[in-house]
């Protein structure tokens, strides 16, 4: 039997097919973290492209494969797309070798974004764990650029070792801004470290925000986000005030390949940014 015609009378774009991106710059942040600055080769595609903070692209290294990478540049900057990547896997290790002028594949943007439009004039808590958390860097820059639209900005970051912190100067610059506070914690520290020691959850006594009018955005390992959610709830935030971004195996990014399923959600298209109540039934549960 014929399919419903209304679904197919226009030739659909092939959502699996990448476009070509040119590498403008490959900047090394640390020995294994790098930022790829890309531009669409086709100016028409560049003009059509628009993303929101929290979304990601699929980057394709010819002959090697595709990986989902979050976008760290500002959505208003239409000429460039920045991706900060840690070289940990088969594809990212090869992406690390790229040089200006090289061409790779790009598809996107995909997934949900941080609720920037809904949180005007609220205090924003950005709580991250692990190495520089790319999915929220775009949010920090977004707020900094539109500072009067938001309330207090609190940036909390935990790292394993104080040497792991990237963008150190950047944190100091943010901390110096009006109505903005940065709190950093490291489990292991060197004498040069003048922030706190411990976990990111140990920083709550140091920061100041209005729990009634705050929104929290979490990024990091699930064990860290789970502990942070508990802490936030104790400190008077409701579950609906908590947002987080998740990582799963994503191969198609369009909700077809099935790998990223988390309970009933496809992390690639229903996420990666979720409001906590949406995922809490399976969040940080073994096997999900």
């Amino acid at each position: 039997m014929l399919m419903d015609k209304k679904l197919t009378n226009k030739k659909p774009l092939n959502p699996y097919l990448p476009a070509i991106a040119t590498v403008l710059e490959n900047r090394f942040e640390t020995p294994d973290i790098f930022t790829l600055r890309l531009k669409f080769k086709d100016p028409q595609l560049a003009g059509q492209y628009h993303f929101e903070p929290g979304q990601f692209n699929m980057l394709y290294m010819p002959g090697v494969g595709e990986v989902p990478i979050s976008i760290v540049s500002d959505p208003d900057d239409i000429h460039i797309i920045d991706h900060t990547i840690r070289a940990v896997g088969r594809v990212t290790r090869v992406l690390q070798q790229l040089k200006a002028g090289d061409e790779i594949g790009i598809r996107g943007p995909y997934g949900s974004s941080w609720p920037m439009a809904q949180i005007k004039q609220q205090d924003v808590l950005i709580i991250t764990g692990g190495l520089g958390c790319a999915p929220v860097v775009s949010v920090i820059n977004y707020i900094v650029k539109r500072r009067s639209d938001f309330g207090r900005l609190v940036i909390m970051q935990g790292v394993k070792h104080s040497n792991d912190l990237i963008w150190k100067d950047q944190y100091e610059q943010w901390d110096a801004l009006d109505n903005t506070q940065v709190a950093l914690a490291a489990n292991q520290t060197t004498p040069a470290w003048n922030w706190s020691s411990g976990y990111v959850t140990d920083l709550f006594d140091e920061v100041c925000f209005n729990p009634i009018n705050s929104i929290a955005m979490l990024c990091g390992p699930e064990i860290m986000m789970s502990a942070t959610v508990r802490e936030l709830l104790q400190r008077g935030l409701s579950e609906a005030q908590i947002w987080l971004t998740m990582e799963r195996n994503m191969q198609c990014a369009i909700g077809h390949c099935g790998h990223c399923q988390h309970g009933s959600k496809f992390v690639c298209k229903d996420g990666p940014v979720f409001n906590y109540p949406v995922v809490k039934d399976w969040f940080f549960r073994e096997g999900f």
Partner: peptide, 15 residues
């Protein structure tokens, strides 16, 4: 076929 993205490889045989 009936979600946000249409799979053209499935559609070409299904249509």
């Amino acid at each position: 076929l009936q979600q946000q993205y249409i799979d053209p490889y499935y559609a070409q045989h299904r249509e």
